[in-house]
Design a protein around this nucleic acid. Structure first.
Lengths: 198, 198, 198, 198
DNA sequence: AATGAATGAGCGTTCATTCAT
DNA sequence: AATGAATGAACGCTCATTCAT
């Protein structure tokens, strides 16, 4: 095994990644305001200076953090959609997706935090909603496949459909609900049953 | 026209109310952290000192603000439930309730803010969830009446039922949705249709 | 027994006395700065307003408090000196005085507090030192009587003599010594032994 | 002449020293409460932030300041004791010590300030008394040497002996006495004369 | 005479950010 | 690229004091 020597760029990417992860963790645990630059840097094992070598400002971190957070979800959904799975497999996949991703307290809290910031900060708003829309579109397509698989036409367009389920999942978690899977499935099945046939 | 002379108590109650209102407004517009004592007091037309003559601390304000906010909703629901309305009237009342109260961006944002604080602050958590549970119980009873009016048995117990619809309303608003009424009614009707008969 | 009805003046004197006592107590326990007007008033059972009805300001209280504190000691010493006691009785009286008064942690702390303020505040300084000088003069006369009783001439004039013993008593208490009586008597006896005969 | 370039550490040490000196000066001139962080920093030529880059809190400064203040005295005494001076030289040294150090108004005031804080703050108390005891022990040894040099046994153990003279010096200065040397020497000589022979 | 709501200066402290090293 | 001392604005909060009641 060859000891890998990191180049400057790789090394910095490592620093940046560690800062991202720590910042995400702290934003979830304490919120954006309480997650101070100093604490983020130190908990990541660096100094304040390293933070500002990697991010122009704290709000720059927020932008990039959001980008990364949403991109991960979008990529996961896109992969599922473009892979050659049958609609049945996708349907099962969605159930898993609902069970795992949306049943993820940490993601829900972070998303709520970001949404509150978006509602108050116009500049951030644009950034967030673009990504959120893309995410919702992808998730909506996936949910639509389930409806279709049951021979039904979903009652809402892609994004609206996805947002409904996201609202359900995240809204329940915010209320302290540990696992919103039951409610989500209840609503999903009910909507499928009452939906118009294809 | 009689010149109203305010007593000391009345006068202070006025100050307190103004501070409450301003604080609520600012918590919605800027969030708990950004709504600093200084800004709250000044925007209410008082000095910082006046704030601390009326509230023991900023977190005391948060507690009382939450109490007041939730109590208003609980009282509104209780009044509706205990008044002699027929279940049909109640059913229409709920629809109105959904249209108005839950379609209230400001309330949704404030509630989300409080929920995020509750998730991170153990002491506040107890306070919030007690009130939230009471609120959910009352709302759940109201929603149950609609199901019964349609000859159906709701698929969840009171609190869980209410939380599902609250999640839907607040979750959608957090995503930037201006009016979640369509989705709420869609899900409500769907759940009623697919519910077991009484 | 006739129920005493207090006139306005008597009633106010009562309030003032209670404020004095409480202020003294708090100045000892917490120091002048930490003994806030609010706490003094409340602990005395009154409102802030009552404080300012009786004292022009907090530093006015300090002045009057000092006056009262020093006056009590001066009066006690004067009474002892002018009463018809024999020098032997006075000598025993001083020993008792040393044992009780100067062995009084509370008085020592309060005096040290006042001395520090006097060293820093010119206006207060004048007030304090006048009283202190009077006190020292009286105490010095008493100590001189002991020396004379032993057939000796004290090695310092009245005030300087008294200040030496006050320094000893208060300085030891400030260092945490609970009972400086041993050291005081040691020094007193030693000085008497080595003093010139009358 | 070589242009001195200060490293980061040296530079910070300079800042810290300036803050220490200014803080000491202000604590003497105005007392602990009145010597606010803001004033200390500004008078030292820095911003408030610089203070908190160098001290964790104001009470941390107090701890370190006390440490430094007492340590200087202890070191001076220790050096005198461990150097090869004859007891006669030491005896003269003590006289000088009494003349200079204890005849130091500033030190006396600072020590009194610290003692009052120690009497009221349990946490600080431990810190102060440990250092004070060490200091008293060293001073006591020195004073004992004088007694021995005169062929006498001191009437008190080391610490108690030292505290007696410290009380005398500081207590007199607190009373406004500018130079307590006369009283100190009077008491010292008197105690030596009346002490038991070795 | 006594109350206590309101004031506004000041407190100790935190924070994002800068910059010399 | 990374460090961390220094900055200065802002924070939550306390205080002596005022004044309408």
């Amino acid at each position: 095994m060859i000891k890998k020597r990191l180049g400057r760029e790789e090394s910095q990417q490592l620093t940046r990644d560690k800062l991202f992860d720590t910042a995400t963790e702290l934003m979830i645990r304490k919120g954006f305001h309480a997650a101070s630059v100093n604490v983020i840097a130190e908990e990541a094992g660096f100094s304040k200076g390293a933070f500002f070598s990697n991010f122009a400002s704290k709000s720059d971190l927020l932008l990039q953090l959001t980008q990364r957070f949403k991109r991960v979800e979008i990529d996961r959904l896109s992969t599922t959609l473009t892979s050659g799975y049958s609609s049945e497999q996708l349907s099962h996949g969605l159930n898993a997706y609902i069970d795992t991703l949306k049943n993820n307290t940490r993601c829900a809290i972070l998303d709520a935090e970001l949404q509150l910031i978006a509602l108050r900060d116009e500049e951030f708003s644009q950034h967030y909603y673009d990504l959120h829309e893309e995410n919702s579109e992808a998730l909506g397509k996936l949910i639509t496949i389930i409806f279709n698989h049951a021979g039904k036409k979903p009652p809402l367009e892609h994004a609206a459909l996805a947002k409904t389920f996201t609202a359900l999942a995240e809204g329940l978690i915010l209320q302290g609900h540990e696992d919103p899977a039951i409610e989500i499935k209840l609503v999903l099945n009910s909507l499928i049953q009452t939906a118009e046939p294809l």
